[in-house]
Nucleic acid binder design. Sequence first.
DNA 1: CATCATTTAAAACAACTGTTTGGTTTTGCC
DNA 2: GGCAAAACCAAACAGTTGTTTTAAATGATG
Lengths: 209, 209
Amino acid sequence: MSQTDTVSRILDAAEILFAERGFTETSLRTITSTAGVNLAAVNYHFGSKKELIQAVFERFLTPFTQALAVELDRRVATGEPLTVEDLLSSIYQVAIGSLVKRGRDPQRFMRLLGLAYTQYQGHLRRFIVSRYGDSYRRFAGLLAQALPGLDPVTFYWRLYFMLGATIFTLSSFDAIEAILREDFGAESSLQETLERLVPAASAMLKVNG
Amino acid sequence: MSQTDTVSRILDAAEILFAERGFTETSLRTITSTAGVNLAAVNYHFGSKKELIQAVFERFLTPFTQALAVELDRRVATGEPLTVEDLLSSIYQVAIGSLVKRGRDPQRFMRLLGLAYTQYQGHLRRFIVSRYGDSYRRFAGLLAQALPGLDPVTFYWRLYFMLGATIFTLSSFDAIEAILREDFGAESSLQETLERLVPAASAMLKVNG
DNA sequence: CATCATTTAAAACAACTGTTTGGTTTTGCC
DNA sequence: GGCAAAACCAAACAGTTGTTTTAAATGATG
């Protein structure tokens, strides 16, 4: 088994199991056995469990933020002012696109993002902020420009409301979809849900008062 | 030390520690030592760690849902139609009121609610749904009545958007508030944040399209 | 005061955790 | 083909986990 193979098998297994159960609820033995590699391989290749967790996030956040930067560059270059709806659908489509392209499951990453926010893992928060804080600030800045006249504190609270609605809903997408399918017989795709989320979140950001 | 004293000391400590770190990250030894009771007391009084977790939720969800029922009864009895804003501010005020009255920290319960949604604890989800599902459905029904003409599937997705925005934001209230205070020097109370949340969430629920 | 169930205490339990060790196999390169 | 470096493996390590056991203390009741 080649090195890159072992490393990516570990990352694949860890990504799935972390998203399902959380970090502390997933042992290295579960990861290595589902990956079909030796227990010691994690510490050999990544150093520690903490660093494995960070590597899982790095593997999907780096291509995502790069694709987002490209998309934002493209839109800014047109010279046309960016609306709130433009920005939201941009970031959602980039999120889906940059993952589907690699044959990965977008909902899983929403679950991981949700975990990063809610779980008790100080090192992970620090890692993400230091590594991807610039991307976040650029997007937030463009969004603020699309909402002139809104005072900064109100804007930032609403930005968190929007983040909460997005991450929370999409990280539980499968569960919510199953409930609605049972109660109304109506299937919802991730794409459709994002199309519902864009106008709803935009209205929340734009409302006066 | 009397029995009720020991029981409530355990619940107090567990509530704080669970909200801070999560369930698996909090050991029974940490709980019992901060509570100043013996380790075996948890298994003696509650049976298991799972049942302790459920007891923590029961202790704050039961008074909350009871107070909510009283408040909804009161508002329905006036005969006036309930607006979305009415319902949201009702539930927020009841949440704060029913807790502050008991000298408990409202943000802690938002954190616990967030954990109940995001953590990998199937038994807790089942416990909450079976115990408090009726309260949830009544509130959702009244909210749907306040939004006539909205198709059910769209309504429920937006309800989840709203839940996500609320739980996610308020469970991280301290962290977000600290960031905004540092960046803008503006302090935000929980009360003020709820007053921002009501119109924002209402706009999200009511928007056309 | 004696009796009995309730409650606490300390210790031990078996299972599981992340990590390290020492040795073996495989790989890439001269 | 030989050799050093990288990769892998099984085993053991030390520490923590939830839970149970055994014995001592407590407190109410006759």
